[in-house]
Design a binder for these strands. Structure first.
Lengths: 215, 215
DNA sequence: ACACTATTGACCGATATAGTCAATAGTGTT
DNA sequence: AACACTATTGACTATATCGGTCAATAGTGT
């Protein structure tokens, strides 16, 4: 159907990066509701640009959606996957890396992760998944591939342990997000430390309950 | 603002229960998108009734929304909380009860839980939360209140352990839901057994890692 | 002065929206 | 049968929103 988009050759890439990201972040946020429900009016309002400009660059809502996916994919590749050290086979250490990276990315692209995770069940799915051959969620197993299973205690199934670990941090994250209603930047920054401290505590629990005793 | 709705005295309660639940389930499903985005046309289409009938009973979309919340609250009270045995202080046993009850309720009211959990961040929040004084999520801590902390190993913080347990089952549930695209009833029923078996396995893991050895 | 791109927002036809209403079907009462 | 009352329908309305267009203006480089 649609071929893979080369984002680097796209007209909008010559736009000032701050403005471009404002537009893409607005698109991520709005497309979170699904392709059909998303409104181009809302996107331009959120991005602070005119309606005409959006269509000047993208031509149609569908093109914008496909580009948003390609743009997010590019960011994930260059600012996430390539920065992850997959030689770290201790799953708890690797997760720690992932959390730090995700926090950084969430400052820059607040709704990008949510946008990517909605792809699997939305009507936009057919628009893009075929041309890319994968969905974001299919990448998750890769994040936990090739981990060192010898670190786990003998009675523990590593697969289930990794699931517990992953779901715990997913649950903790959403619990934090729903608690924070005000995007009061000073307030958020203050909670950032406790956030990381909490996570380290959970990591240490997992280390004691799942891993063999250190010698 | 709006006072608490007494659902038992509402006109619609004299309607045949099956039909009424069809309407309310359609409302739960549609209001999942938030008050504004929900469409009364979609609700009547889903419920298989005419537009006029909906407004005959509820007068306005806003009244319907408020009633839906009251209706769900009533169901939660009578078909969930009151059936839970809070004298079971073993948190893993209590969770097992909760899971079984939730599955039952999800057959009868497939979108009710989702509807209730969206209240906290939706525009409809202001419509109802004030008049009831609580949101659904504020009830969650009550579910885990007064548990027997002496069952836990000495090195384990019971609060954190309960969080891990709760988030694990939340994560497992959503993982299952995203996997099932087709509401193929026979297929779903077949997976039901594996579903419960998985959960029991996780429960047994938690029992071994968090609880003291049995004598 | 010229060419070209960036940017705007009023505007368009199409669609979707919440809510109305007159008409019909149904049910129970006398 | 006649009456009263409620249940139910779906065409209809007025408004809002939708994706997309376009002529005009601002800006930039030559």
């Amino acid at each position: 159907m649609s071929k893979k988009i080369d984002i680097s050759s796209h007209k909008i890439m010559s736009m000032e990066a701050e403005k471009r990201n404002r537009i893409m972040n607005a698109a991520f946020k709005e497309f979170n509701k699904g392709y059909k429900k998303a409104s181009t009016d809302s996107i331009v309002r959120e991005a602070g640009i005119s309606k005409g400009l959006l269509f000047h660059y993208f031509g149609s809502k569908e093109n914008l959606y496909e580009f948003a996916f390609a743009y997010a994919g590019d960011i994930m590749l260059k600012e996430y996957f390539e920065l992850l050290n997959f030689e770290q086979r201790d799953v708890l250490e690797r997760l720690w890396q992932m959390i730090l990276l995700k926090i950084d990315l969430s400052y820059k692209y607040p709704m990008m992760f949510d946008f990517l995770t909605t792809l699997h069940n939305e009507d936009g799915h057919n628009l893009v998944s075929k041309s890319y051959g994968y969905t974001f969620e299919e990448m998750i197993p890769k994040l936990f591939a090739d981990i060192d299973e010898t670190l786990f205690k003998d009675g523990i199934d590593p697969k289930m342990a990794v699931n517990i670990i992953y779901w715990t941090f997913a649950g903790y994250s959403t619990a934090q997000l729903t608690r924070i209603n005000s995007p009061d930047l000073a307030e958020v920054q203050k909670e950032y430390d406790r956030f990381l401290k909490d996570i380290q505590e959970y990591l240490s629990i997992f280390r004691t309950i799942f891993y063999k005793e250190e010698k």
